[in-house]
Computed example of a mutant assay.
Amino acid sequence: MAVGLRIRDPATGAVLITLDTHLTKVLGTFSTGMVDGSIIDGNLANGTPFFAAGPSGDASSGSIPPTIVATSSGISWSWPTNPAVGFRRAVDVTYGFWT
């Protein structure tokens, strides 16, 4: 059986999304920079929001990426332990929704 992309719950291994059963739309990309922040995109309300994040530039050892939260109105990010800027890692985020 041919299978496209599958995204699984890391705790249970259950399949959450498959591209053969859901349609996706990528809405954009952005970099978090090194400070807490958010973007607003009302198009996320058209389905279930998703995002994928990867290091922006050097992902040096000991650096801490932000916690990212997606809702139907936007995406926010923060560093929960509030580390000094020198220990924060900026990430590039691609986001959209699936139906």
Score class of each variant (00 low, 15 high):
M1F: 11
A2M: 11
V3K: 11
V3Q: 11
G4V: 08
L5D: 15
L5F: 15
L5S: 07
I7G: 08
P10T: 11
P10N: 03
G13V: 05
A14N: 10
A14L: 08
V15S: 02
L16C: 06
D20G: 08
H22M: 04
H22T: 01
T24Y: 15
L27W: 09
L27N: 06
G28T: 01
G28N: 11
S31I: 02
G33T: 08
G33S: 10
M34I: 12
G37R: 13
D41Q: 00
G42V: 01
N43V: 00
N43L: 11
L44W: 09
N46E: 14
N46I: 05
G47Q: 01
T48K: 07
T48E: 07
A52C: 06
G54C: 05
G57E: 06
G57Y: 12
G57F: 14
D58I: 13
A59N: 12
A59T: 04
A59I: 10
S60T: 06
S60W: 15
I64Y: 09
T67F: 10
I68E: 02
V69N: 10
V69A: 08
A70P: 07
S72P: 04
S73H: 08
S73E: 11
G74E: 01
I75S: 02
S76R: 15
T81R: 14
N82I: 08
P83L: 00
A84Y: 09
R89F: 04
A90F: 04
V91K: 08
G96P: 03
W98V: 04
